[in-house]
Design a protein around this nucleic acid. Sequence first.
DNA 1: ACGGGTCTGTAACTTAGGTTATCCGCAAAA
DNA 2: TTTTGCGGATAACCTAAGTTACAGACCCGT
Lengths: 239, 239
Amino acid sequence: MISVALKKLRRRIEISTEEERVIRASIVEVRCIAADEIAVRAGQPLHSSLLLLDGWLARCKDLSSGERQVTQLHVAGDFADLHGFTLKRLDHDLAAISECRLAVVPHEALRDITDRFPRLARVLWFSTNVDAAIQRELTLSLGQRSAISRMAHLFCELYMRLEVVGKTSRDGYDFPLTQRELSECLGLTVVHANRTLQELRRRGLIELENRRLTILDRRGLGGIAEFDPSYLYIDHQQL
Amino acid sequence: MISVALKKLRRRIEISTEEERVIRASIVEVRCIAADEIAVRAGQPLHSSLLLLDGWLARCKDLSSGERQVTQLHVAGDFADLHGFTLKRLDHDLAAISECRLAVVPHEALRDITDRFPRLARVLWFSTNVDAAIQRELTLSLGQRSAISRMAHLFCELYMRLEVVGKTSRDGYDFPLTQRELSECLGLTVVHANRTLQELRRRGLIELENRRLTILDRRGLGGIAEFDPSYLYIDHQQL
DNA sequence: ACGGGTCTGTAACTTAGGTTATCCGCAAAA
DNA sequence: TTTTGCGGATAACCTAAGTTACAGACCCGT
């Protein structure tokens, strides 16, 4: 169901019933892809964008040496490659971390929305700008935070983003990444990602087993992360 | 003159004379600010956006410990806080690296453009998405590239971006950053930024003195950077 | 002309995180 | 029921980058 995406939008901005109708009408197809499949390959000419209804996607940039950086994680409700509407090709792969359900929105439909529903155009633009803000926060993490602070920060951010779409329980959430994938998000080696995870466990802040993350001490976790969620722009905006 | 911004846009997308007129009309004022002034402070409610006509700006995010990460550098022609139009406040400071001339565009004017000139709205949206792509490339640098490769990459990127607006000579460009500021862009300490700079000099790739960067071996510099400019989306798009 | 500040350059030493190599447990093939 | 392969854990060792300290160059203000 597409309602997860509307839920996400509505946590930030009001969406009228007509706008909701327009969004729903823009979807021509719902596709499923398996874990580890590439949903969109870097450089490929694009004619539609993908609204992630369920599962996790990662934006991956690779170096020739094989090192990989995940520049953004996407969860249910995210319009994963909306930036592809104006860019027409991506500078990164969009890879499925888990099995995913994706709503396909043709660029023609988006173009039509921008022509006829300027407010909705601003809402979509806003949404790509929030993605960019999340990106900036990651840049700050990679540039200045220590490994443990980085990892704590990621766990805090995901808690908030998943909470918005009702994908958290009181003390945690399903976390489908392997340690290798986690390390690729944080700019660490797998070995050090593991060490860092152990340290967070040792300090009694989190538990992670069977692809389930339990946050034992959210205050403490936010503390080492210096987590301040204002960059997520979760509050009602005027557009 | 605002023509530097139009030059930048036109390297990527066609802009009609009417669109040019609309852009020019949206500017209500041109302001100058001194080096090290903060043009926009994080969190501050925004009612206009700034088009950088001349000088250099940096998007800065700080940690409580005083560590600073520059998440993006802006040069002449960049619409530095266009994302503020939809976000309404920034998650970072916008600081002047050098003296700057800034064209002020009220959000009302931008709103009017999005209402009445949907194609121009897409052009502006595109421009924030290119900024995000540059951001992603920096994330890749910080996460995976070595210090020397990171620095080489930055120098290559800036060469291309400055070339678009005619701010390069054949073999280099004016580079107003101190080594401290450079280190804040690259997620390094000043000391290590200096070491890395020495190494680039020693290898005969660049020269840097009196705030002027000379690239002695562009091929070689691009080589250690693994520089591929496709993420800058410098080619004509269809919008 | 002098004192203070900022920028650059280096040296000596430390450390966070990278590298390489095993080992264990488990689930899916076969 | 083995086998194979992946994910996780951990140990020993290594290195790129951080830290601290200091010195020279060049401002700029008085």
